[in-house]
Write a protein that binds this DNA or RNA. Structure first.
Lengths: 114, 114
DNA sequence: CAGAATCCCGATGGATACTG
DNA sequence: CAGTATCCATCGGGATTCTG
């Protein structure tokens, strides 16, 4: 209670959001799904730099938090499709903002103003 | 070139943004500065869970990317103030979005819909 | 195809002590 | 006060191999 309660609440909410959609890969996986459902290998094609292991792990975490859903087709060879849930779609505006920001303030330019 | 160029560009911009303001602490430090300049110890008070070492490191990275500025007052004992740059202020809307999202979809509720 | 399992290394990050 | 320095534990994450 030394500090402003509103401010603390603000920080906690941001922290919650970062925990669920932050990290190195989560947001990028969500980007890849923004135009519709994709199979495991299709996501991997869109994100060539992620390893299978990390992709699996990231997908599991997003699924656990109900941000994406996973549908398995009982076929041989296996087919699995991932898509955004309602909750997952609600982060798309945030991704848009990040994209805008990244485009504008990307590394490269030097800002001589401070 | 196997994939849609627009989509790839989108992903790259998001990645850039995540690199600069993502991670465990950066966004929270930015939150703490959203209402104005603060001293090192004041930031630490708002974020009791961050260690001195991590706070120092995080501040250095944000400074390097011109997101915050650091002003040293040549006094004894030392006084250092951190504040958002113009670039730093441009991320506040994103933090607001994250806060909104975190408040709405915070851990705790179970979503039985998928 | 969509993973699970194993091995392994470097980065992350906490605790503590010290300093201008 | 605002750090720096050191030690050390944990974790992220790559490469590779194996399987239903």
């Amino acid at each position: 209670m030394p500090q402003n309660g509103k401010n603390h609440e603000y920080i906690c909410s941001v922290e919650t959001a970062i925990n669920e959609i932050g990290g190195k890969w989560k947001s990028l996986v969500l980007c890849s799904l923004k135009d519709g459902k994709l199979r495991f290998s299709e996501i991997n094609n869109k994100l060539p730099d992620i390893s299978q292991r990390m992709l699996t792990k990231t997908l599991r975490e997003l699924e656990k938090d109900h941000i994406i859903s996973r549908k398995v087709y009982p076929e041989v060879p296996p087919k699995v499709e991932y898509s955004l849930t309602t909750k997952g779609e609600s982060v798309l505006p945030i991704l848009d903002s990040l994209c805008e920001w990244g485009k504008k303030y990307g590394e490269g330019e030097d800002y001589l103003e401070d």
